[in-house]
Design a protein around this nucleic acid. Structure first.
Length: 287
DNA sequence: CCCACGACCTGTGGGC
DNA sequence: TGCCCACAGGTCGTGG
């Protein structure tokens, strides 16, 4: 669900409450999310102090003063909610009915400062683990990850070499976290639309000029989305309860049957399925 | 190795 | 109103 801009927005919402916080009490209300929580999850967290919250791809990272990193992935429907002095909104005041919501409050962090950070995840595709900090880079979740799209390593040259051998569609290739880390279905659709590249093109067939444009467009779309707090479709919100606004700027995603917004294009946005996922694009101006 | 597809889990919204 | 189906922001394992 949450892609890079949403996860980054969540990180920014959690940081004021969790950076430097001591976890006075931790509740694991069920033994597993997508995967079982690690052995001793609660004990290993209780009393630990968190350093600076960070993010890699779609993973949230909370480094602990005990040498472990609490790694959290939101899956499709994971979100955090803050309650306490720093909360801007009353608990439970959100998209799901309170009764439904409460049922999916799976993990609760109580800080020494009296704040409560609750992880909700109805579909339970999210996951958490505790990984030794010095083993993080070699961990299977991180080892093969591609460059951060907003970082210096994400370049047209890099994309060119990743794309070179692939006959797979450019849509599917950009969703591959080994190629570039953090894009998901929405932002790939939006970036390809803005780039004027058909999602069905074989990745390896893109010309240097298209690759350069694509890199720039991906950066722009993500930066814009972060700026407005990500996209709120159903169950996503920042940890402080703020809703994202980027969904109002979608030009392709979710716009099946609506007119292409490029001046004088005249096309109509189509929905196709690639790799089992919806792709939205304009067949006229995306070639 | 590459790639397509089903599985995981629950909720929502549309059509009848 | 109620029921059934399609679909949802992600990733992993399997099998061709």
């Amino acid at each position: 669900m949450p892609e890079l801009p949403e996860v980054e927005t969540v990180r920014r919402g959690l940081a004021p409450v969790l950076d430097g916080a001591v976890l006075a009490r931790v509740e694991a209300r069920r033994p597993d999310l997508r995967f079982p929580l690690p052995d001793g999850f609660v004990q290993r967290l209780t009393g630990a102090r968190i350093g600076q919250m960070s993010r890699r791809a779609k993973y949230l990272l909370a480094p602990l003063d005990r040498g472990d990193v609490l790694v959290m992935h939101l899956g499709m429907s994971g979100r955090f909610e803050i309650a306490g002095a720093k909360a801007k909104r009353r608990p439970g005041e959100f998209v799901y009915a309170a009764s439904v919501d409460e049922k999916h409050a799976h993990v609760v962090f109580h800080t020494g400062a009296g704040e409560t950070v609750t992880y909700f995840d109805p579909r339970r595709f999210g996951y958490m683990d505790l990984i030794a900090e010095d083993a993080l880079a070699d961990h299977p979740w991180f080892k093969g990850l591609g460059p951060e799209p907003l970082g210096d390593d994400f370049t047209a040259a890099r994309l060119k070499s990743e794309f070179a051998s692939r006959r797979q569609s450019v849509k599917a290739t950009l969703l591959d976290q080994r190629v570039v880390a953090g894009l998901g279905n929405i932002y790939v659709c939006e970036a390809l639309y803005r780039s004027g590249i058909s999602p069905e093109r074989a990745a390896g067939s893109l010309k240097p000029k298209a690759l350069t444009g694509l890199v720039e467009t991906i950066r722009q779309v993500l930066a814009e989305a972060i700026e407005v707090g990500g996209s709120t479709l159903r169950d996503y919100a920042a940890a402080d309860g703020a809703l994202g606004y980027f969904q109002h700027r979608f030009k392709a995603y979710g716009r099946e049957g609506e007119p292409c917004l490029k001046p004088s294009c005249g096309g109509v946005i189509e929905r196709i399925v690639q790799g089992g996922r919806s792709t939205f694009y304009c067949p006229i101006c995306q070639r």
